[in-house]
Design a protein around this nucleic acid. Structure first.
Length: 877
RNA sequence: GGGCGUUUAGCUCAGUUGGUUAGAGCAUCUCCCUUACAAGGAGAGGGUCGGGGGUUCGAGUCCCUCAACGCCCACCA
């Protein structure tokens, strides 16, 4: 290799102690992972790194998946690519907001004015009885900035310790001014193209967080409930329905049954009156009604579930909302309730939570005789916000949406086609994407009624009626971004006009965290700010992420890229698996079994932990295994020792390798290089490692043992090789060992960056991570000129057969000694090998090495059909 | 209900177009301080490849079917 120093500096006692700190420092100082901004797109390998949420802590799942990405980055770099490998911190959104509240003991009140030099009541662990101090939004965001900066430093230190070859100069955060500007700019572009719109509509609502929630953030949870059989009153008698939510009877706007259901056909077009509240509602036919569910006829309420919304919309029904944004029954009864009894019944429910209202209304129904039988307990799936604790309600509110194909088949088909354009690793993950896109039931709801986030960057004129004009929002110029409409003023207005007739009002909402996260390729590449950089890296080559966020992060990023850039955001997505407990459960904090990465780095070394991660097949859920880390530690240690050993012989990488056994070893290694390269090109880092490691142990255990005596040469004693009159055979072994160790160090470098750079540094002045990935040509097995004396050139199958035969003989000698319970060093008086002529020739070619390795006095070859080996030990002296 | 994945040694997993006797590591047992490494080395035992059926000269590998486990989505009166 070029840049190699002829001086070899091999430590007397190799060690991995301190290797991480040393190389973290050196890599940083030398800037070897810095992206070269002059590289053209085809020379670049760009990675859209997932920005971890900094409000939590990094756990083994991060170590696992980020290691996978790093092995790819290091491989591509060694292949000569200019690797664009940024890191981002996701410090935007609810998790950060909650952490800041709990850490400082504050709460955000956007109506308050900014206080300069504000000091929070606490820094860490406020007492339980502390009442949160309200602060303005700008003050709150300052505190968010302070805390996230602390958290981010911890994250960076850990990732550096893990050995990620990130270019830290590309670091971005999702709440920075840059991110807010990018996010707002992208949103305004969506608005300008007609892809973003605002609408007042029923929305899934979390009553505890007080915010709307998108389809992608839902999850079902099994919850106990009960079917209640309730009578409505029609002209022809009672109409009995079943409901799990009787508290919504005052919100009832109709009944619905299947069009083909003969039982209810006579009722279609007629009306019935609701129990207790005596409101007249129509009976409607609709195919979504299921005859076999309950009594086959259901009540439509505003709103019990999403099907209610469909019916409400299709039948153009009135809105009778009773659940407020706090989850409690509204003070005012729906206007449709007119009877005194009905109004009295409603009044008794006001202010109660949905659950309390249900208990109360069941009692009322029982008294009135409209409850038929007793409620029947059931367990049923209920929709929750994935971070929430109470079931979602549906309330009507004004929200912003971005079109995502949920209401538009053409766009949906286009996004499905984009999914096909990409490569998926593993391939079957694309089904999850397609499944999700096909199941969309509405556009992407991007507004959130929260504080810490990127504000929706618009204002509205306040009309003569005092109402905001939502139809034509006031838009800031690009140069003004980022803005906060709660404090900034639109052009042409002054601050005194805020909230007054003829003035303006800012949109109070922030964007969904995914509205910003969906722009990570643009954020990392400085889109709209540095178009030159953007053009050099976009679309990116690789998006690594968890398969649980295909429907959120991956999909929303695809939507943004498709709408804004008319193409896919990356050529391939690599989906990593989960970390499981040893007992196959997903690792969870609550179970108290989360091990901190730092402890493991300390205990086994970063390379060992990386080895565990890199051993897992792409996309496969993997058991947490300290055993695997121990194995990785052994591998690193072995690499140190065998490298040191090989170094002592002073061979040359370009020296002539003439002996058949040496050439056969290099031929096998050539195959390994080809396999590892192929595997990495297919993003299968695990296979690359497995092939390399497998060869490595064979190399140490068999090959080195066989050739080391020859390598020492005649006259070499006490661990010091001969230096004069060294034979060609001896030189061949030295050169072969050297060439192999060079290649092995490089093959292992993407997986174990610390120990490989350590051993590389013993004989090179440059980092192994800036060195070229080995090729088959490096082995010399495809370049006969390196061994002109050997003709004809050894073919790969012939090499394999030679190695196989030699290993078989060696194993038999070893087995004999083990079974005789003597040292491997024990003398053998005779080895008789029965084999055919071709094997006999192989044995002869390696006979010197076999004699040396086995301490054999006499070799005898007997003609025979099948290979068999008979070993006679010398009598103990 | 729809979709996807997994099932190979006690444990964790390889096994790439079907092809010698199904492999590795860990664990277990035995032995060995041999001129790098005892944080080492040499060996041994251990599997009817989830069940059944089929294609083939030949199936862990391809087809059908069943089962268990896991995940995604939908429904949620």
């Amino acid at each position: 290799m070029s840049n190699g120093s002829p001086t070899r500096r091999v430590p007397e006692k190799p060690t991995l102690d301190g290797v991480e700190a040393r190389f973290v420092e050196r890599w940083n100082a030398d800037g070897i992972y810095t992206f070269d901004r002059t590289a053209t797109r085809d020379e670049v390998f760009a990675i859209d790194t997932p920005p971890p949420t900094v409000s939590g802590s990094l756990h083994m799942g991060h170590v696992f998946s980020y290691t996978h990405t790093d092995t790819i980055a290091r491989y591509q770099r060694m292949r000569g690519k200019d690797v664009f490998y940024p890191m981002g911190w996701d410090d935007n959104g609810l998790p950060t907001e909650r952490r800041v509240q709990n850490y400082f003991g504050v709460t955000c009140d956007p109506s308050l004015p900014y206080v300069a030099g504000f000091t929070p009541p606490f820094r860490g662990s406020p007492p339980k009885d502390h009442r949160a101090v309200p602060v303005s939004r700008p003050n709150f965001i300052e505190l968010c900035d302070e805390l996230t900066a602390q958290d981010e430093q911890v994250f960076e230190d850990l990732f550096r310790r893990l050995g990620l070859s990130v270019d830290w100069s590309l670091l971005y955060t999702t709440i920075s001014a840059h991110a807010r500007r990018t996010s707002q700019r992208a949103f305004l572009d969506n608005l300008a193209r007609g892809e973003a719109y605002t609408q007042e509509a029923p929305t899934l609502w979390d009553v505890d967080f007080g915010t709307a929630v998108a389809q992608a953030e839902l999850e079902d949870r099994e919850r106990p409930g009960a079917y209640h059989t309730v009578a409505f009153h029609g002209a022809g008698g009672e109409v009995v329905i079943e409901t799990s939510r009787p508290e919504l009877i005052p919100a009832c706007v109709g009944l619905v049954a299947h069009p083909d259901d003969a039982r209810y056909a006579p009722l279609f077009g007629t009306t019935v009156r609701s129990p207790l509240f005596d409101v007249e509602v129509g009976v409607y036919p609709h195919p979504l009604a299921q005859p076999d569910k309950g009594t086959g006829i259901a009540m439509i309420c505003t709103f019990g579930d999403l099907t209610d919304v469909v019916w409400w919309r299709e039948f153009n029904l009135p809105t009778r909302a009773i659940i407020g944004r706090d989850g409690r029954l509204l003070a005012d009864a729906p206007a449709a309730i007119v009877s005194d009894a009905g109004r009295a019944h409603y009044a008794s429910l006001v202010g109660k939570s949905a659950k309390q209202a249900q208990t109360a209304i069941v009692e009322l129904l029982r008294t009135s005789g409209d409850l038929k039988g007793e409620p029947r307990p059931i367990t049923h799936p209920v929709k929750f916000y994935e971070k929430g604790d109470r079931p979602l309600e549906i309330v009507t509110s004004r929200q912003w949406y971005i079109r995502n194909g949920g209401r538009d088949q053409t766009l949906r088909d286009a996004l499905l086609a984009r999914g096909e354009e990409m490569h998926w690793h593993p391939d079957h993950m694309k089904h999850r994407y397609a499944n999700w896109v096909q199941g969309l039931n509405g556009d992407w709801l991007v507004s959130r009624q929260r504080y810490f986030g990127v504000p929706i960057p618009v204002w509205y004129r306040v009309g003569a009626d005092g109402q905001p004009d939502y139809a034509s929002p006031l838009i800031p110029e690009h140069e003004r971004l980022p803005i906060d409409p709660s404090t900034d003023v639109p052009n042409g207005f002054n601050a005194n006009q805020r909230g007054v007739v003829g003035g303006f009002v800012g949109d109070p909402d922030v964007m969904d965290t995914w509205a910003t996260s969906s722009l990570t390729p643009q954020l990392a590449s400085n889109w709209a700010n540095d178009d030159d950089l953007f053009a050099r890296v976009f679309p990116m080559d690789m998006r690594p992420q968890g398969h649980d966020i295909i429907r959120t992060w991956l999909f929303s990023t695809m939507v943004r890229s498709h709408l804004a850039h008319g193409g896919i955001p990356w050529r391939r997505a690599t989906l990593s698996g989960w970390i499981l407990d040893p007992d196959r459960k997903k690792m969870s904090k609550s179970k108290g079994n989360v091990v901190t990465p730092i402890d493991l780095f300390d205990k086994y070394g970063s390379d060992a932990v990386r080895y565990w991660a890199a051993s897992a097949r792409p996309g496969v859920d993997t058991a947490f295994s300290e055993d695997q880390m121990k194995v990785g530690g052994k591998l690193a240690n072995k690499l140190l020792n065998v490298s040191k050993f090989v170094m002592t012989f002073g061979g040359s990488e370009s020296g002539a390798v003439t002996s058949p056994l040496d050439r056969a070893m290099l031929s096998r290694l050539s195959g390994v290089v080809a396999e590892a390269t192929l595997a990495f090109d297919d993003f299968d880092y695990a296979r690359a490692l497995e092939r390399t490691e497998s060869f490595f142990w064979w190399f140490c255990d068999d090959f080195v043992e066989l050739v080391k005596t020859r390598a020492y040469g005649t006259g070499g004693v006490d661990g010091v090789p001969a230096t004069t009159n060294v034979s060609d055979e001896s030189l061949s072994a030295r050169h072969a060992l050297t060439r192999a160790i060079s290649i092995l160090q490089r093959l292992l470098a993407p997986h174990m960056p610390f120990c490989t750079d350590e051993v590389w540094s013993w004989w090179h002045n440059t980092s192994v991570h800036g060195t070229a990935w080995p090729t088959s040509a490096d082995t010399g097995s495809e370049a006969p000129s390196l061994a002109p004396s050997l003709a004809p050139s050894l073919t790969a199958p012939a090499a394999e057969q030679l190695l196989h035969t030699v290993s078989t003989v060696l194993a038999e000698i070893r087995r004999t000694k083990t079974e005789a319970k003597v040292s491997q060093r024990a003398a053998v008086s005779q080895v008789v090998i029965t084999c055919d002529a071709s094997r006999a020739s192989e044995v002869t070619q390696a006979q010197t090495d076999l004699v040396n390795a086995g301490n054999v006095a006499e070799f005898k070859v007997v003609d025979g059909a099948t290979l068999s080996v008979n070993v006679t030990l010398a009598p103990a002296s």
